[in-house]
Design a protein around this nucleic acid. Structure first.
Lengths: 347, 347
DNA sequence: CTGAAAGCGCTAACAA
DNA sequence: TTGTTAGCGCTTTCAG
């Protein structure tokens, strides 16, 4: 247990050596030539006294805090933020860094965002992670350039900051591929109405995959609604009322899929017997708990947090050049999580 | 935008005054007598140069970092942690503090927990918040005593650390009260099987409320299963098969309630027409998205995070005595969130 | 009304 | 092989 009151000089005194010596042995300074006896002596004395370094003083002196700032949009409202934080925290601690977290609202003013970054800068964090709640384009705070920074789940409108985002199109391709593999040929898409990258990219992936499979992707049925349960329900009702009703449904997210489940139940369609459904997001609370379990596409939040952190630290330590990486966002895989909502189409 | 390269002495030089003067005006030191002109001069020069204080240096000198450590169990797995963090973050920033977050696993070893606290101590946080993922008793790390600390959603086995927890029994009372108010007299409880405070306290609240309403609380039907959807389903099947089938169900949590919904559907029982259901936890993803919306009891995670932070800061600033508060845990209200799953019992 | 100087705990030249 | 010392950027006592 580190005793806040004992410093390096107390150890030095107790061990009968100078502070330099103590500093050298405790930090394993390579060029220091110190006898093994002195080393042991110092170490044991430090241990006995319960010495713990004062990281503030170290940081002041070395100009390195070993702290990363994480500004995260809407930590509480989605479980996604938690996974980003977890990925970042684990990657950070693996390299000896810690995380300072600042929460910001998704609709905070530019000034307030700058103030958040400013707070981090005043504490001299070595780098900053800037995470958004869902994949989107953002105008980064102007003072973000003060230290190395990487965006998580967002790309900057200027395109000048290193960023890591999910492979939306790839995820959609995987989802549709799943349905195709099960033998479906009449596949519909329940899309979101928001103008965000996911909406466009998943649609593109949907159509392209069908076309590549020899189906008419351009003509495949798509219904759009707000990406909530209710929207999913309504879009599903519409799409299932079409002539040549789809036997497979790809949903923009798990909530819409949940709405599709209800629509199917009302229409007397069993899942997956009469209708196969694939979601997106892998919100476990929903996907794992629906009946039957929802096959869905996972967003790589943990991985994005970890990737961003590793590369941020590499940049801080001079092992990587963020400038180069900023050229285009890094895109991470969205793997399919197979549960029980996909089967062969009815005969 | 704060420029990392300009310090107090640059401001002093540019303004033609001493560093003392700069420090005094920038910190509004009460006893400093400085002419308004000098004040303005200093402020404008500081502004122009983009001066921002180096909080590390300040902290080293004042022995106050303005940082709070938050060690949180399983940040990612539940949305609950997010709400605690949010409550803590908002309370902290309102008082000029920031949060350092360390994630720990629910089943981490005592040593690893101590190491987490140690990391915070080395960074000289002014106080520590220790949050668990669900309400329980814990053995606090032995080095937690190094600074003021408060437990969130947990109480220490020794009972010596200030703690804030949800009012489990009160929440159960409110839930049952809700059912009683709708006219139900045959009310059942789907309980958890884990040996945790919530299991016992909710059961006690359940029975007591019935008894106080003139019903036989001791004989009221209770079925226990693991607190997941599947457990809820099974417990519901059993309880609904009993003679004198309950018309109202109080469920240990929202996931079990979700299982009860499925059981009801299978039995052809409509909610809330034939069966009223009340959950616990208010996991929005579930409660708000079930059909009909689930009336449930909210856990005060945000409030616990905020309460803990406010009192921690009070203690740090000498405005409160945590020792006194440690005598018994502070208990926060669990309010009912009314949705659409409760109605009068069938005739 | 303002300034000089000590010192928070540590690291790293440099000296011995 | 080890010690002396300057200084990281700031606050604060004490002296003008």
């Amino acid at each position: 247990m580190s005793n806040k009151n004992v410093g390096i000089k107390d150890v030095a005194f107790a061990a009968g050596v100078s502070v330099t010596t103590v500093s050298h042995v405790l930090n394993d300074v390579s060029y220091a030539r110190i006898s093994p006896e002195t080393r042991d002596k110092v170490k044991s004395v430090a241990e006995q006294l319960g010495y713990g370094p004062n990281r503030l003083a170290q940081a002041l002196r070395t100009q390195r805090t070993g702290m990363l700032g994480l500004v995260s949009e809407d930590i509480a409202t989605t479980p996604h933020a938690g996974r980003i934080i977890l990925g970042a925290d684990e990657a950070a601690r693996a390299r000896g860094y810690n995380l300072m977290i600042i929460n910001t609202s998704g609709n905070a003013s530019p000034e307030s965002r700058e103030a958040d970054v400013e707070a981090l800068l005043e504490r001299r964090v070595d780098g900053i992670l800037y995470a958004t709640m869902y994949h989107r384009h953002i105008q980064v705070p102007s003072n973000l350039g003060g230290v190395p920074a990487v965006l998580v789940d967002a790309v900057s409108t200027g395109g000048s900051v290193t960023a890591v985002v999910p492979d939306e199109e790839g995820g959609a391709r995987a989802a549709v591929g799943c349905l195709l593999a099960a033998g479906h040929t009449r596949i519909g898409f329940l899309n979101n109405t928001d103008d965000v990258p996911a909406t466009r990219d998943r649609l593109r992936g949907f159509r392209a995959t069908l076309t590549e499979a020899g189906l008419d992707g351009g003509a495949a049925p798509v219904e759009s609604e707000p990406s909530e349960v209710q929207g999913g329900y309504e879009a599903a009702r519409r799409i299932l009322a079409r002539p040549g009703r789809p036997t497979g449904l790809f949903c923009y997210n798990d909530r819409m899929a949940m709405g599709a489940y209800r629509a199917a139940a009302e229409l007397g369609l069993s899942i997956p017997g009469d209708l196969s459904v694939v979601g997106f997001d892998d919100q476990e609370l929903i996907a794992a708990n629906l009946h039957p379990g929802l096959t869905t596409v996972a967003l790589p939040h943990y991985e994005m947090g970890a990737w961003a952190t590793q590369n941020l630290i590499d940049a801080i330590e001079g092992k990587a050049d963020l400038g180069l990486m900023a050229l285009r966002p890094t895109v991470l895989d969205c793997p399919v999580v197979v549960r029980d909502s996909v089967a062969a189409p009815p005969l």
